[in-house]
């Protein structure tokens, strides 16, 4: 059961989707605020300070990208965007504009709840201001302070850039990160147009930490959108 205090703002114009979200989220103990339009959503976000926002990118009254930016200017709380399939570009733009995660319609309740949990965990962590020095996912352990990566008992030797990339993903474990985000954080703004760097380094890290690089356990790819480090 989730924390009963958690308030979710759902900005979605489809009545049926709101109804199904309300039913599924209420059973999990979340409190739901509904907004049928973008304008109303922004007003609610300002007035009610929700803990997390679920935003449909295909609203009739405002552009998905614009509203993501407006919401991000208003609050630092996580935003999960919903969009239809085939609109990978929109998702990437929304993520680059400040959204934390995305879900493709149609999605299952289980998926949604998992994303909500990841988002809340990250939000809490960054609110607390303390980044944990060591991150463990399954057998993979990343120790920031000592620059050490281990899988099970064996230590993995990574180059500084490989480590930086893996750590950036680990810091946001469970969340999808866009190529733009990773290139900027790891290589710097001058490398924004060299996405092949990212792909080649990803392949190298997989070769080192994955048992079967073609069926990765940790470093997951979402083609057209970005990369995600599994969080469990």
């Amino acid at each position: 059961m989730a924390d009963p205090e958690v308030t979710i703002l759902c900005i979605e114009d489809e009545v049926q989707i709101r109804r199904f979200l309300r039913a599924s989220l209420a059973t999990q103990g979340y409190r739901l605020i509904e907004a049928a339009t973008g304008r109303q959503g922004i007003a609610e976000a300002a007035a009610r300070t929700p803990d997390i926002i679920i935003l449909d990118l295909g609203l009739p009254d405002v552009d998905g990208l614009d509203i993501t930016q407006e919401l991000r200017a208003l609050t630092r709380r996580p935003i999960i965007v919903l969009s239809a399939r085939g609109q990978e570009r929109d998702k990437v733009d929304a993520l680059d504009a400040g959204a934390d995660d995305y879900l493709t319609k149609p999605f299952s309740v289980a998926e949604l709840l998992a994303r909500i949990r990841v988002a809340l965990r990250h939000a809490d962590r960054s609110l607390a201001g303390a980044e944990s020095e060591s991150i463990t996912i399954g057998e993979l352990t990343i120790d920031h302070a000592r620059h050490r990566v281990t899988v099970g008992d064996s230590e993995i030797r990574l180059t500084p850039t490989e480590f930086k990339l893996l750590f950036e993903l680990a810091r946001h474990a469970g969340r999808v990160l866009t190529p733009q985000h990773l290139l900027r954080e790891v290589w710097g703004p001058a490398y924004l147009d060299r996405s092949h760097y990212l792909r080649i380094y990803m392949a190298r890290i997989r070769g080192k930490i994955e048992k079967d690089p073609a069926r990765p356990r940790y470093l997951l790819t979402e083609p057209g959108v970005g990369y995600r480090l599994a969080d469990t």
Binding site: R206, A214, R215, P216, T221
Partner: peptide, 12 residues
Amino acid sequence: HPLEEIIGAALH
């Protein structure tokens, strides 16, 4: 693209 990555994503 590394082909391995695309195959991995499809298998996933």
